[in-house]
Computed example of a mutant assay.
Amino acid sequence: MQRVKNIFRLVHLSSWVLFTFLVGLQLHTDGQSYWLPLTIWFLVTCLYVFYSHFYLLTRYLGKNKKRAYFLRLAGIVLTGPLPFVFFHPKKLNTWDLFFEYYAMVLISIVPIFLFLSWLARVTENLVLNTIKKEQLEKQAAEAELHYLKSQINPHFLFNTLNNIHTLVYKQAPTAPEAVLRLASLMRYMIYESNAPTVPLTREMNYLQDYMGLQQLRYRMSPVVELEINGDPTSCQIAPLLFIHLLENAYKHSPARLGPGDIKVKVEIKTDSLTFHIQNPIGKHQNKVIEEPGGIGWPNVQKRLHLLYPGRHRIEIENSGETFGVRLEINGTHAPIHERETHLLHH
C-alpha cells in the first residue's frame, strides 16, 4: 500500500515539474520580460487551488458533510486567484485592473484545477480502495487455507491414534513401530508442511510413511500398489493435499484387503500432475467418500478451489465394486505464490 502511495507522489511531482517547464517555456517564447516570476506565481496559484481542494476531498469525500464541504470549497474558489493577482510582476494598482485579472484567473484557471484535483483524488481513492479490497480478500483466503490445513492434523491424528490403540489393545508387537512412524509423520506435518508448496517427492514419501503405518494392520503383502510415472523432482504441490483421499480409500475398503487392492497412480507431465486412487468398496458403504460429519473430502475440495482455481479437475469413478478418484492439477511446476494471485479473482 505504501509503495502505491509513493508512486502517486512521484506522479504528482513529475506532473508539476513538467507543467512548470511547459508554462515557463511558453511565457519565455511569447517574449515576456518577467516570464520567470510570472511562472512562479502562476504555479503557486495552481498548487494552492489544486491541493486545497485535493485535501478537502480527502476529508469530506464520501461523507455526509456536504454543507461543510461546499463552504470550504467556496473559500478555495474565492481565494484561489489571490496569489497570482497580489504578486503579479505587473503592478495592478487600480481596482479595475485588479478585478480584471482576478476574474480572469477565477473563470479560466480555478475551475480547471478544481476539476483536476477532484479527478486525481477519485483516481487515487479508486486504486487504493481496490488494493485494500484485494488485500482483505487475499487475507480472508489465506485465513481459510490456514483453517483448512489446521483441520488436517487433528483429523489425521484422531484416525491414526484409533489404529494404534487397537494395536496396543491387542498387544501387537508392531505397536512401538507404529508410534515411531506416527512421530515421523507428525514431524512432517508440523515442521515441513507449513510452506506453500513442497516437492512432490517429499509429499509422496509422506504418503508412503502413512501406508507403512497402515500396513501394520495387515500381515500379508502391501495392500497398496503405488505407481509413479514421470519425474517427481520437477513438481511442486500444496502439502497434505492427497492424504484425505488415501485415508478414505482405507476407511471405505473392506476390513480385509488383499495385496494391491488399493491402487495409487501418480503421473507427472509437463506442468501438470494426475493423482488417481482406487479402492474396493466394502459392504454396506452408503457414503463411499466421507462419513457423516467428516471433514476430509470437503476440505480437499475447498483447498483445491482456493489453491488451484480453474486449474484442477476431479472425476469420480464408482463401478459398484470399486471406487476411484482421479484428480488432475495444472500449473504444478510454478511456485504457489504466483498462483495465489488468482485467489482474488475467483
Rank of each mutant, 00 (worst) to 15 (best):
His244Lys: 11
Val223Ala: 04
Met211Trp: 03
Leu119Ser: 14
Ile314Ser: 02
Arg121Phe: 15
Tyr69Val: 09
Ala140Gly: 06
Tyr188Asn: 10
Leu128Ala: 09
Tyr48Ile: 12
Leu240Tyr: 05
Ala103Asn: 06
Gln278Asp: 11
Glu340Asn: 07
Val122Ala: 07
Glu124His: 09
Ile329Glu: 01
Glu225Asp: 14
Leu56Thr: 02
His88Ile: 03
Tyr101Val: 12
Glu247Pro: 02
Lys287Cys: 04
Leu327Ser: 04
Phe158Arg: 07
Thr160Gly: 02
His244Tyr: 15
Leu73Cys: 05
Phe70Cys: 11
Ile316Thr: 10
Leu145Gly: 01
Ile289Met: 08
Gly260Lys: 13
Ser15Cys: 05
Tyr188Thr: 06
Lys63Met: 02
Leu106Phe: 06
Lys263Pro: 00
Asn163Trp: 07
Leu114His: 05
Thr20Lys: 03
Pro259Ala: 15
Ile107Val: 07
Tyr169Asp: 08
Leu304Thr: 03
Arg339Ser: 02
Val168Ser: 10
Ile109Lys: 08
Ile7Tyr: 13
Tyr206Leu: 11
Glu124Gln: 11
Asn153Thr: 15
Val179His: 08
Leu273Pro: 05
Glu225Val: 05
Phe113His: 03
Lys269Met: 01
Thr270Tyr: 14
Ser52His: 10
Pro196Phe: 14
Ile289Asn: 05
Gln301Leu: 08
Thr270Pro: 04
Met104Lys: 12
Val179Asp: 10
Pro111Val: 04
Tyr55Arg: 05
Tyr308Phe: 14
Leu114Cys: 06
Arg121Lys: 15
Thr197Ile: 03
Met204Pro: 04
Pro81Asn: 10
Lys5Cys: 10
Leu128Gly: 04
His53Phe: 06
Ala175Glu: 09
Tyr210Val: 06
Trp118Glu: 03
Gly260Met: 09
His337Gly: 07
Trp118Gly: 11
Tyr51Glu: 07
Met220Ile: 11
Ile164Phe: 02
Ile336Phe: 07
Gln32Asp: 11
Ile329Ala: 00
Ala249Glu: 01
Gln151Leu: 11
Ser319Gln: 11
Phe323Thr: 01
Gln285Asn: 11
Val49Met: 10
Ala183Trp: 08
Ser33Ile: 08
Ile7Trp: 13
Gln236Lys: 07
Thr322Lys: 10
Asn163Phe: 06
Gln171Asn: 14
Ile295His: 05
Ser108Arg: 08
Glu315Met: 01
Thr322Tyr: 10
Val17Ala: 14
Lys251Cys: 09
His244Met: 14
Lys5Arg: 13
Thr130Trp: 15
Pro196Tyr: 13
Val300Glu: 00
Arg67Ser: 10
Gly320Trp: 08
Asn93Glu: 14
Lys91His: 14
Lys251Gly: 07
Glu203Leu: 08
Asn162Ile: 10
Leu182Lys: 05
Thr160Gln: 15
Ser184Asn: 15
Leu245Cys: 00
Tyr218Met: 09
Gln2Ala: 12
Leu145Cys: 10
Asn6Pro: 00
His53Pro: 01
Thr45Leu: 13
Leu119Phe: 13
Arg339Phe: 01
Ala143Met: 03
Asn279Ser: 08
Asn6Glu: 05
Ala68Phe: 02
Pro89Thr: 14
Trp297Pro: 00
Ala334Gln: 11
Ala255Arg: 13
Asn93Met: 10
Arg326Pro: 01
Phe242Trp: 00
Val264Pro: 00
